[in-house]
C-alpha cells in the first residue's frame, strides 16, 4: 500500500493535507489493521493527500491517563506533540475514538492544538465536499454500536449513521443507542485487564442488545469496540451469521475497494 510518512513528505519538501493518526490498535492489532487498511483505501479513492507518522507515532497515552498515570500520559503527550508540531501538523484524522478524544480535548492544554476528525466525520466531510462519491450499495441490515468516546464523550452520533444510510444499508437502532448507548466494556483501560467479579461480562450484555435488532452486521467506529463485540458474538455463537465491521470497512466494501 502506498502510505507515505511525514518524514518522507518532509524530505520531498511537501506538506500533506492531513495526518492519519493510526493509533496503537490500528498499527498492531490484526483485526484493527484491516480497519486501517480499509480507511487508507477510502483515502486513496478520494485522492486525499495524507501521511502517517509511522515509527515516529507513539501511544497517545489515553489508556495510561484513564488508569490514573498522569505522568506517563503527559510524557507520551508531550513527546507526540513535539513530533506533531515539528512537522507543522494542523489536521489529524484517526479511526480510534480514544486517540480522537485525547488529541482533540487533552492535547491542547499541553501545547498541541489541531483540528481533529474521527474517520467517520472525515469520510462524511469528503462526501459532502464532493471528493468522494458513494455509488455502491450494501443491502444489509446494520445496527450501529456507539463508541463511548465518540458518542457521549464528544457528542458525535450522526456521522457514522449518515454513512450507513448513504451506502443504502438498512439502519436499525438498539434499544440503548446514541447518548444512552451501553459501553462495550473496553474503555477506561478495561481492554487491558480482566473484568472485576460480576455476573456477566459487559460485552456479552451489549451484544445481546445488538442481537435483538436481528442485524446482518454490527457496525462500529472503534477498534476496541470491534474486538469486544466480535468476542460477544462468538460467545452467543452467532459468528457464522453476523459480522462486526467498522464504518470504513463498510464503505470500502460497498465501493468494492
Amino acid at each position: 500500500m502506498n502510505v507515505p510518512t511525514m518524514a518522507e513528505m518532509m524530505a520531498q519538501g511537501k506538506q500533506p493535507e492531513i495526518l492519519f493518526w493510526v493509533g496503537s490498535a490500528g498499527s498492531y492489532d490484526d483485526r484493527a489493521k484491516k480497519i486501517t487498511k480499509a480507511f487508507v483505501k477510502v483515502l486513496h479513492k478520494a485522492n486525499v493527500d495524507f501521511a502517517v507518522l509511522g515509527t515516529e507515532e507513539s501511544s497517545t497515552g489515553d489508556a495510561a491517563k484513564r488508569v490514573g498515570n498522569e505522568f506517563l500520559f503527559q510524557m507520551q503527550a508531550m513527546t507526540n506533540i513535539e513530533v506533531l508540531n515539528a512537522y507543522g501538523v494542523t489536521k489529524i484524522v484517526t479511526c480510534d475514538p480514544h486517540s480522537f478524544n485525547t488529541l482533540k480535548n487533552e492535547y491542547p492544554g499541553l501545547g498541541g492544538t489541531y483540528q481533529v476528525y474521527h474517520h467517520t466525520q472525515y469520510i462524511q466531510h469528503l462526501v459532502n465536499e464532493g471528493r468522494l462519491t458513494i455509488t455502491g450499495s450494501l443491502d444489509k441490515r446494520v445496527t450501529f454500536h456507539d463508541p463511548c468516546y465518540l458518542g457521549r464523550a464528544n457528542d458525535e452520533y450522526e456521522s457514522p449513521r449518515d454513512l450507513i444510510r448513504r451506502i443504502g444499508a438498512q439502519l436499525t437502532e438498539m434499544k440503548r443507542s446514541k447518548n444512552k448507548a451501553l459501553c462495550c466494556g473496553a474503555g477506561g483501560a478495561q481492554m487491558f485487564k480482566e473484568p472485576e467479579k460480576g455476573t456477566m461480562d459487559i460485552n456479552i450484555l451489549r451484544t445481546k442488545d445488538a442481537l435483538e435488532t436481528k442485524p446482518n452486521i454490527i457496525a462500529t467506529g472503534c477498534p476496541y469496540c470491534n474486538t469486544m463485540m466480535t468476542d460477544g458474538i462468538k460467545f452467543h455463537e452467532k459468528e457464522a451469521e453476523i459480522e462486526v465491521k467498522d464504518i470504513a470497512e463498510l464503505i470500502a466494501e460497498a465501493e468494492q475497494l
Binding site: R66, E70, Q74, N101, N105, E106, G109, A153, N154, D155
Partner: peptide, 9 residues
Amino acid sequence: NPKGQLSNV
C-alpha cells in the same frame, strides 16, 4: 467541556 476530556494535572 466535552465529557471525554479529563483534566490535565
